[in-house]
């Protein structure tokens, strides 16, 4: 029931964001229509970082409590974070082409996201090469902790490296009120979508465990 409410809330906000991004918001003067990507690109990045923070918390909780639930939560959040950050990287690339004439720029935030993408891909590669569930959760937990601790260092080093080159100005006149409102609507839309997906995905993993338990029961009974 609660998930239904969450779903309709995020669907409504997403529809509102369509209107805000496509119709309501004024076109930015220097970059033109393509700047509208920004309203999805930036919230995607923020929510992805939040998702990886949840992975960090879930990993710590798992390693201390050893309750499978925390691993389900952490790995679900890692998966959704990976989906969001992949979309963020692709849209960043699509934005870079008309604006700077290249498909990729080594901009600090974009570069940090790329490194994060690799870390959480590794998170799933490690899981894939382990058969025992408990060990999977343990190792993934360690990657979830170490990977997240790395975020500030990656960002710091990339920023320091890139500031030796001319900085990029994204906005000539700052965010005006309608732009800010649009950004906030998109942020809320993705935020609720994330919470909805996280609960959906975590419950799915609980169900998977239930299926496994039932199967074992049947196997036992049939000798």
């Amino acid at each position: 029931m609660k998930r239904k409410i969450l779903f309709f809330l995020s669907a409504g906000l997403i529809l509102a964001s369509f209107y805000m991004v496509l119709v309501f918001v004024p076109t930015e003067r220097d970059m033109g229509v393509v700047q509208r990507i920004f309203y999805y690109h930036v919230p995607l990045a923020w929510i992805a970082f939040m998702a990886f923070f949840i992975v960090f918390i879930g990993s710590i909780m798992y390693l201390f409590k050893r309750k499978p639930f925390w691993d389900y939560l952490a790995s679900s959040s890692a998966e959704i974070g990976l989906v969001f950050i992949s979309l963020m990287l692709i849209t960043g690339s699509i934005w870079a082409q008309p604006t700077w004439g290249v498909w990729w720029i080594w901009e600090p935030r974009l570069t940090t996201s790329l490194i994060l993408w690799f870390i959480y891909v590794a998170y799933f590669i490690v899981r894939g090469y382990i058969s025992e569930e408990e060990k999977q959760a343990r190792f993934a937990g360690v990657v979830g902790i170490i990977g997240f601790l790395n975020v500030p260092l990656v960002f710091l080093s990339v920023t320091l490296w890139r500031t030796q080159h001319p900085p990029l100005t994204i906005f000539t006149e700052g965010l005006v009120a309608p732009m800010m409102a649009t950004l906030l609507v998109c942020l809320f839309a993705f935020n609720f979508l994330y919470i909805y997906l996280l609960s959906e995905r975590t419950l799915m993993k609980l169900d998977e465990a239930e299926v496994k338990r039932l199967k074992e029961n049947i196997m036992e009974r049939n000798g």
């Binding site: 490194i115 690799f118 870390i119 891909v121 590794a122 590669i125 490690v126 990657v143 170490i146 990977g147 790395n150 260092l153 990656v154 710091l156 080093s157």
Partner: peptide, 9 residues
């Protein structure tokens, strides 16, 4: 796969 992304800084 684990080592390189972490040691980038």
């Amino acid at each position: 796969v684990l080592f390189f992304p972490i040691v980038t800084p």
